[in-house]
Design a protein around this nucleic acid. Structure first.
Lengths: 151, 151
DNA sequence: TGATATAGTTAAGCAGTCTTAACTAATCAG
DNA sequence: CTGATTAGTTAAGACTGCTTAACTATATCA
């Protein structure tokens, strides 16, 4: 018989198969339509979620050298999605932030996914929706804790 | 005040966001270490989940031209991850399949994500795990229904 | 049979990503 | 102050990924 742990892992694995493949593909497609690549998306998402940071942090996040990060940031600045200002505390460092244009694009990408998720609500009862919302709340909290523990 | 529907949508959106960021980053990193890129991953995953198919199907899946798909497939064949055989029913078409080497790599990537999911289970109580498993079950079923209705 | 459509390949060209190596400029440690 | 470290940039070179356009070979239709 299956243990609680195994059932949990199986449910999660199945969910990943159905959802992730769809969501990942759609997301990449959205950004490709906007003329941006995976690394560029990752960089902008990093800034959206973690706020301003330096060039090396972006590089570390993507697992590339500072040189690569610098070049990529430069392209995003040219395109008007990022702003690259001098850090007032350390004049060697730069503070990267999303411009209004950058924030708008991130927002649009999030909206696009939301529309698909909304369709799901339509085929579930109110009771199911409440249960699922609660369960996913714990799951999200657990994932965030794990991220904090070892980012 | 938030409606049931809104709470549901928010919980789902948040979870997808947290999971996507983490999973996408880790997956891409894993394959980069193996010397492969996102499109190459997608192509191999497509073959893993849907079985053998032709070059154009891979292209359609990735949203690129046949020429691009053909070139990419060629690289994967050179690297020994894919096999490109003639379709016996239609000699114009090719049947792409994963080689043993290709299957091994896909398996290793799936294992890598499973480890993270295990960690997630470790910080949740048995009760929470059961609730979440149930919730994800309904969610996955609903998503499959939706896919059948309009694929 | 002959015209047309389909599956895939090849070539040329452009842009993005990445690396290493050499460099500038600012900060820090002694 | 001097030397070492740190943040970031720049340049050269290799490679991927993509596109369009031209091409081969097979299949289908009338």
């Amino acid at each position: 018989m299956l243990t609680t742990k195994q059932k949990f892992a199986d449910a999660l694995r199945e969910w990943v198969e159905v959802f992730m493949r769809r969501s990942m593909r759609e997301t990449v497609q959205f950004w490709k339509d906007a003329g941006l690549s995976m690394p560029q998306i990752s960089a902008m998402m990093r800034l959206h979620h973690h706020g301003a940071c330096g060039v090396s942090e972006v590089g570390a996040h993507l697992g590339v050298t500072n040189a690569a990060a610098s070049q990529m940031v430069d392209r995003l600045v040219q395109l008007g999605y990022l702003e690259r200002a001098e850090d007032p505390n350390d004049r060697r460092a730069k503070q990267l932030t999303l411009t209004a244009k950058g924030r708008a694009l991130v927002q649009k990408s999030i909206e696009a996914r939301r529309r698909w998720l909304d369709e799901l609500g339509a085929v579930l009862t109110a009771e199911q929706q409440t249960e699922i919302a609660d369960a996913l709340g714990s799951l999200t909290a657990a994932a965030r804790d794990l991220d904090k523990a070892k980012p």
